[in-house]
Design a binder for these strands. Sequence first.
DNA 1: GCTGCGATCACCT
DNA 2: GGTGATCGCAGCG
Length: 193
Amino acid sequence: VPFSTPLPRDFYDRETTEVARDLLGRILIHRTDEGDLAGIIVETEAYGPDDPANHAYRGRTRRNAAMFGPPGHAYVYRIYGRYWCVNAVTGSEGIGEAVLIRALEPIMGIETMQRNRGVSDARLLCRGPGRLCAALGVTGALNGIDLIAGPLWIAGESTTGAPIACTTRIGVTRAADRLWRYYLQGSPYISRK
DNA sequence: GCTGCGATCACCT
DNA sequence: GGTGATCGCAGCG
């Protein structure tokens, strides 16, 4: 089975902006009853140290507890009362940093994703953090799970040489000047230019 | 294609 | 009681 080996915990135990860049081109997979749903990560955002936009900025709460756990776990939270967003927890245990997965290029289980989203255009299936969670069936039930154990994990090789663009983060009002959004230059699957 | 707006709720003050 | 790490749709032109 391709992409069956999750990235090791060491991968996530690094500086958050570095992990955010290194996640581009990797594969996010959710193993469900309807089969494996997967896509290539084409857009990420870092939520790092001394960062007022980071949910962990003001310390540990019930919502963000997963961010303070060991690296390589999922932080899934609800936003605007409607949608889910998924992060990979980075840095050492107790730090409270993560990478938000913002867009995917769908590669496996596309028919199921289309059904989950009520949309057929592949470019729109996983374009945005809320949409990709809906497409892959990622919900708060997966908050805190170990990305090394599944049923949600990240795999794949490093993509060296692919041009990476850096911009400010989408929808962020605090620390709005920080260039902590990353995407694969030229990908038609990113959420915005 | 772009802009504006409302939905809707967990979380925090 | 106010605020989002969002999205889909209406309206415009």
